[in-house]
Amino acid sequence: MPNFELMPIGVFAQRTGLTSSALRFYADSGLLPPAETDPVSGYRYYTADQVAKTIELRQLREIAMPLQAVEAVLDAEPDDAARLIDEHVAKVLGGAEAVQQKAALIKSSLTNESSVPIAALKGPVLADAIEQVLTATASDPGMPVLGGLHVEARGEELTLTATDRYRLATRTLIPVEPAATTWAATVSGDELRAALGEIRRSMLVRVEATSHGIWLRTADREDRHCRLLPEEFPDHRLMLASLSEVTSRVTLPKDLLLRALEEHSGRWLSLCVTRHGLKALAADDEHPGFSLPAVVTGQALQISFELTTLYPAISTVIGPDVMLDLRGPGQPVTVRSADRGDLTTLAMPVKPDHSA
């Protein structure tokens, strides 16, 4: 259709994904006047030149942008328009977070629900632990629990665990004040992420549990609430108990391994463990491998990983040296610090042909 050819409002509505009534509203508000209006019948007509702007208008309204802000975006240069969109999104997210916290307070007052003290921890330590373990979560609508953090309080320990089925990360913390009771539940990972800033800036965080969530209480900041996920968390203890014996152990500097993984341009890599060190075999001629010095004990073997599985497991290791405990080509590898044992990650390998 030539740009100058007029379209009736019904045809234009189909082209742009808006209803005729919405187009009339935007015309009457002055945001999107028709190209021409029949003075006798009042019929409105549009041109092909108006299609792109109308689609952009529709998309902006789909993200709940007010009309005044939509008009500003449509009239702005690309850089300014992008900034205005970012400002709107930040405002919406901030409002949603505030609503979430107020809703938690309302629910608590409605049920007069008391909270049970779980443990008290140093804020920066708790924030780092949550951030490290949450790297093993996944967004899966079919299994929402994979996006959560499983929290277990047992006397002198508070254990955080997460899994996306390809990785499992677990870290054990020693509370400043021990757990008042044995307690376990899975907490929303998204809501914990949103609370990380407040947790990290607090000297002491007291964790209290209710039947629907946990409260993160601080002395000088606003309390934060994170809801519990109702789905059952995978039986990670059974999986850990059923792991076979370690056949090879590799210890090497974390920074060297991370740098090599960052420079590796392929999607997969095969690690070859020998008594001389660790070598990554090239998947093809376009993605060369690398060799790294390492302390190796046990059997020589070759094992393959997807880079997006192995890299996060290595990056969260605490300390300068990383230790890899290997059990064979088809078995999960345990990744942890060479001198600290409170954070452990299991990473699942792939078959040599790169199938899961």
Rank of each mutant, 00 (worst) to 15 (best):
W215R: 09
R224M: 05
D220A: 09
A219M: 13
W215A: 07
E191H: 12
I199V: 12
H212W: 11
P234K: 03
S211F: 13
L196K: 03
L229K: 08
E208Q: 08
D223V: 14
R237Y: 12
A194V: 06
L192N: 00
H225S: 11
A195K: 04
T210K: 10
L192C: 02
R224Q: 09
H225C: 13
R224C: 07
L228P: 03
M203D: 15
E198K: 08
D223I: 12
L229A: 13
L192E: 00
L216N: 07
A219V: 15
R200P: 11
E198Q: 11
L216K: 04
E222M: 04
L196R: 09
R206V: 07
G197Q: 07
I199R: 03
R217A: 06
R200S: 12
P230N: 09
A209D: 02
D223A: 15
H236Y: 12
R206Y: 07
R200Y: 14
D223T: 14
R193Q: 02
H236L: 01
V205M: 10
R227E: 02
R217I: 15
R237N: 15
R201D: 07
A209P: 00
A195S: 13
D220V: 13
R206K: 14
I214F: 01
V207D: 03
V207Q: 05
I199A: 10
D190Y: 10
R227V: 09
F233M: 04
L216I: 14
I214D: 00
E222T: 07
H225F: 15
R221E: 07
M203A: 15
S202H: 08
R217C: 13
L238F: 15
A209Q: 02
H236F: 14
